[in-house]
Each structure stands twice: as C-alpha cells, then as structure tokens.
Amino acid sequence: MKVDVSKPILDRNERLAAENRELFAEHDVFVLDVLASPGAGKTSTILATIAALRDRYSIAVIEGDIASSVDAEKIKAHGVPAVQINTGGACHLESDMIRRAVDTLDLGAIDLLIIENVGNLVCPTDFDLGEHAKVMILSVPEGHDKPYKYPNIFARAEAVILNKYDTLPVFDFDEEEFRSVVTSLNAAAPVFPISATKGNGVEAWAAWLTGRIEAMREGAA
C-alpha cells in the first residue's frame, strides 16, 4: 500500500532554522553565516569586520570547528563574546547547534551575530541555520578556478569576499576570469577584494554589510 509522506528530508533542521529566525527577529539580531575552505581567512575576516563595525554595532561570534576552541579564543581576546561549537567530525553546522550556542548568549544585547561555519565548500550550502545572509570567502592562493569546481556555494552566497588580495602579485590568479565566472553563477553577488590581516578593502565590505543590517532593521520596524 502506498502512503503519502510529502515532507522535507531536512524537515527537522528547517523547522529549527525557522525557530532560530523567529528568535533573531524578536531581538532584532542580524545573523551572518560565513562559509569558506579551511585557511581562506574566515577568522581574520571576522576580526577585520569586527574592527570596522564594533563602534556601530554590538557583535558576537559563533565559531564552528570540528575540534578545538582556538578560534573562539582569538575572538574573545578582542573583547567580543564568542561561543565555540565543536561538531566532533561533522562537516557543517546545523540549526540545533546554533540554537544551543545562541542560548548561552544575551541576544538582547547583540546587533550582529556572525557564524563562522566549518571550513568546507560543499556541505554547509544545503543547511539553513536561520541566518539572514550567507557570504563566502575565497582567498587568492586557492586559485581563480574554484567557482568552476564548487559552483553551488558561489551560487548561494549573497556576497563573495576575495581575501589575501595583497598576495595577488605572487600567485597566478586571473581576477577578471574569477569575476566573470562568479557573475555567471550569481549575477547579484558583489565581489569584495580585501586583505583581512592588513585591513585593506574592508570598508567596502563593511559598508555592504551595514546596508544589509539596516535594510533588515527597517523591514522589522
């Protein structure tokens, strides 16, 4: 006998993501999910973003890693609340992990919550966490051909950060080709070249993020 099920497979994750989204809306918190491969500079970019926006917004960070708390310690050393999630081998973050981490934060005192996802260009793209925007970081040494190999993540990101831009002269990175492939995958996504550890280019990225946060707030008001 055939019985209808008609349910999303990630039903549980999607329901919890919707709950997270409601919780964030209740407290007017903008949530950014940062995706990249290991070593692209996620933590450095988050630190540069904090430096650019901390006078304007109160910021907290959720760090997702398979093991260790080195990233959360780095963020905390800058006086910003950080929660470390250890996935223990899982290659991406899911909504219930975010919820448990959020429960340890004072959401009422936070304007911008940045989630550093596990370093991976594949799995995190399919998991809604309740965030407002997913952005991805590619670093110059990884090569301009990455969008050909991992198209989905470029197609889903709202913005693409090109990090370690200061190393462009020593790598065989074709910026024009990179931009044209990104545009073909995702016409609406802006590309922000930055050097996170030096602070170069961060203003344009921070201005874009501010625009997104303010748009959310106006929508909520």
Partner: peptide, 14 residues
C-alpha cells in the same frame, strides 16, 4: 528539492 514523497508499506495480514 530534498523531500520524501511517499512510502510503500505492508499492513498486518498483508
């Protein structure tokens, strides 16, 4: 899509 459409099952006595 990532969805379960339907299942085919046996009932008791089947």
């Amino acid at each position: 899509e990532l969805a379960i459409d339907c299942i085919d099952i046996d009932l008791p006595g089947d």
